[in-house]
Each structure stands twice: as structure tokens, then as C-alpha cells.
Design a protein around this nucleic acid. Structure first.
Length: 229
DNA sequence: CGAGCGTATCTTAATGCGTA
DNA sequence: TACGCATTAAGATACGCTCG
């Protein structure tokens, strides 16, 4: 199915103003990756500058709408419908490279309807992060190794904690009212601690990844990428 | 010319349903 | 219950394009 959808060869259009780039990186100026010759027929094919990534409110809306999971087609559509270039082939490649979580298969009722893959809603945000970093000049390999390795783990902790809070909250309601109050207070307390730990872990992992980022900058590399995760 | 990203396409795996 | 079929996604890999 993906094969029929890969005719878009138009160019990426990263956001931001002039961004330094590494050796072997493509220059990114005024939100346009200058990969194509200026005299190419397609050089000025997109008269209106477009954003490379989704805005925070758009991400929130998507995550809310697809809280139970989102298909690959819907993910790609979330970007392409907003004039942000992102093909299904690229999506699959990111998954293959380990930049995105894998899908879970869900069968569909009805004759010969097969199954479909459902991805967590956070996948859209992850793609957004990856695209931001790529716009900064980072390679997929660098993003994978320096940032997303940590991001995966911290997100995992955050998700497990959220699940734990939910279960505890549910089970606490089964206690008698006198005990419940005390347990709820304790839960709220430990929840604050947990959230703080997740925040600190996020900050720490950014700092750990930062030296590499600084090296890249010194070498004429991308800047500010550590602020993105 | 090499590096890097994106695309095309074939193969393989997973899933649900129908039927013997 | 086991098997085959239809459907879809994922894996693998070669290739094209652009840039330094």
C-alpha cells in the first residue's frame, strides 16, 4: 500500500533562520534545505514557505485524538495534511532504524480484512523531534545514538509510573473512607516525587548528551539540538 | 567520490476469517 | 482444530539525488 504513495519528491523545508551545519551536512537557510540547484525546475516549486515540524498545540490535538493508537497512514497524514513533507517510506525507515517505536498488530473484524499496525500516539511527537534534529544538521545515526537512546528510557519510566499511579488510584478507592484519605495523600505525594524524578532524568540525559553536541558545534555543526528533547 | 537521506520494490511475517 | 487465504506491515536492499 505504501508503494502507491511515494510520488512526492518535493523538497524538505526546515524551519528556523540560518543554522550552522557540519561537514557533509546540507546547509539550511531560512527554512529551506538547499539540496537542489537553484536553477532546477523544482527549485522554486513551493512559493509559500512551510514549517518542517508540527506546533505544540497541533501535537497535543493529535495525541488526544489518537490516544488509543494511530496507524502509519494517519501518522503520515498528520504531517502531509499540514504541508509538512513526510513519506510513508521515510516513516518505515525511521522505525527500522529504531528511531520510532514499533507497532502492535490489531486484527479487524470482517471477512478478509487482515490486520493493521497501531503505533502509540507519542510517535507523532517523536517524528517531530527527529525532524527538528535533522533540520539542525544531525544524522539519523547521531540522533539515534546521542538522544533517543535516553529518550526511550526516560519515556519508558514515565509511562510505567503513569500506569502505576493509575492502578494505585483505582485500588485505593476499594479501601474504607478513613484509610482512603491517607492513601490518596500518600499517592499524591509520591506522584510528585516521581514526576520530579522524571524531570530530573530528562534534564540529566540532555546534559550527558550535551558534550557531543558542543563538539559538533565547535566543528561548525548544528546548534541548540539539546534543547529539543 | 563518499556521506547521508529518501524512494522503490521484493520478500517475509503477522493477523483474522472461513471452511473442511 | 488445522489449514489456507486475503490483507497489511515490516524487513532488507539497491538505487537515485544532493552536497561538500
Amino acid at each position: 500500500m505504501f508503494r502507491q504513495l511515494q510520488s512526492d519528491t518535493s523538497e524538505s523545508a526546515p524551519t528556523g533562520t540560518i543554522v550552522p551545519f557540519r561537514a557533509h551536512r546540507r546547509p539550511i537557510v531560512d527554512g529551506v534545505s538547499h539540496r537542489r540547484d537553484d536553477d532546477s525546475p523544482l527549485a522554486n516549486a513551493s512559493p509559500t514557505p512551510r514549517s518542517l515540524v508540527l506546533k505544540e498545540d497541533e501535537l497535543r490535538a493529535i495525541e488526544t485524538a489518537f490516544a488509543d493508537g494511530i496507524t502509519a497512514v494517519q501518522i503520515v497524514d498528520a504531517f502531509t495534511s499540514r504541508n509538512i513533507k513526510f513519506s510513508e517510506a521515510s516513516f518505515r525507515k525511521y522505525v527500522q532504524q529504531g528511531l520510532l517505536p514499533r507497532s502492535r498488530r490489531v486484527g479487524r473484524k470482517g471477512k478478509h480484512r487482515g490486520s493493521m499496525g497501531m503505533y502509540p500516539a507519542k510517535t507523532v511527537r517523536r517524528i517531530n523531534d527527529v525532524k527538528s534534529l535533522m533540520a539542525e544538521g544531525y544524522t539519523i545515526e547521531e540522533i539515534q545514538g546521542q538522544f533517543l537512546l535516553y529518550t526511550d528510557l526516560v519515556e519508558g519510566i514515565s509511562e510505567h509510573l503513569a500506569e502505576l499511579w493509575n492502578r494505585l488510584g483505582t485500588d485505593i478507592t476499594k479501601h474504607d473512607p478513613a484509610q482512603r484519605k491517607e492513601l490518596e495523600r500518600e499517592l499524591a505525594d509520591v506522584r510528585r516525587d516521581g514526576d520530579r524524578v522524571v524531570d530530573r532524568l530528562g534534564a540529566l540525559t540532555r546534559r550527558v548528551a550535551a558534550p557531543r553536541t558542543d563538539n559538533l558545534r565547535l566543528a561548525g555543526a548544528a546548534g541548540g539540538a539539546e534543547d529539543l528533547l
